[in-house]
Amino acid sequence: MITIENLSHTYPGTRKMPPRTAISDLTLAVGDAEFVILSGPNGSGKSTLFRILCGMTLPGGGMVRIGGYDLFAHPAKVRGIMGVVFQSPAVDKHLSVGENLKIHADLYGIRGADFTRRRDEALGWTDLDGRLDQKVDTLSGGLARQVELAKVLMTDPKVLLLDEPTTGLDPMSRRNFLAALHKLQKERGMTVLMTSHVFSEADDVDRVAIMREGKLLAYDTPAALKAMIGTEMVVVQARDAEGLAARLRAEMGLAVRCIGDEVRLEETENGESLPLLERILDRYRPDIAAIAIKQPGLDDVFVHVTSKAVPDHALALELRKAAS
Rank of each mutant, 00 (worst) to 15 (best):
V36C: 01
A309P: 13
R119T: 11
T57N: 04
G60Q: 07
V236F: 00
T126W: 02
L161Q: 11
G189C: 04
S307T: 02
I293K: 00
L132T: 07
V84C: 04
F50V: 07
V78R: 10
P41Q: 06
L38V: 07
P157G: 14
G13K: 08
P157W: 03
D206H: 06
I52K: 12
P165Q: 01
R15T: 12
A289R: 12
S307I: 00
G67C: 02
A122V: 08
F35W: 05
W125M: 00
D127H: 13
E213G: 13
E278A: 12
T155C: 07
R320T: 07
R111A: 08
G230K: 08
P311H: 09
L107C: 10
P157D: 11
T166S: 12
K16N: 07
G40T: 07
V91G: 13
F177C: 06
R79N: 03
A292R: 03
T221V: 10
C258N: 08
K186I: 13
D32I: 09
G109A: 12
T126R: 15
E213L: 06
G230R: 09
D206W: 10
A250K: 13
S24G: 00
P75E: 03
P275Y: 13
P171R: 10
A150V: 09
G31Y: 11
N270T: 05
D70P: 13
V136G: 04
V136Y: 14
G80Y: 10
E34I: 01
L217E: 06
L162P: 06
G271Q: 09
P171A: 13
D203N: 05
D312V: 14
L162K: 04
G67Y: 02
I2T: 09
V136H: 11
S39K: 09
P41C: 15
A122L: 14
G62Q: 09
G297E: 01
Q146W: 00
V263P: 05
Q237I: 11
F199M: 12
H313A: 15
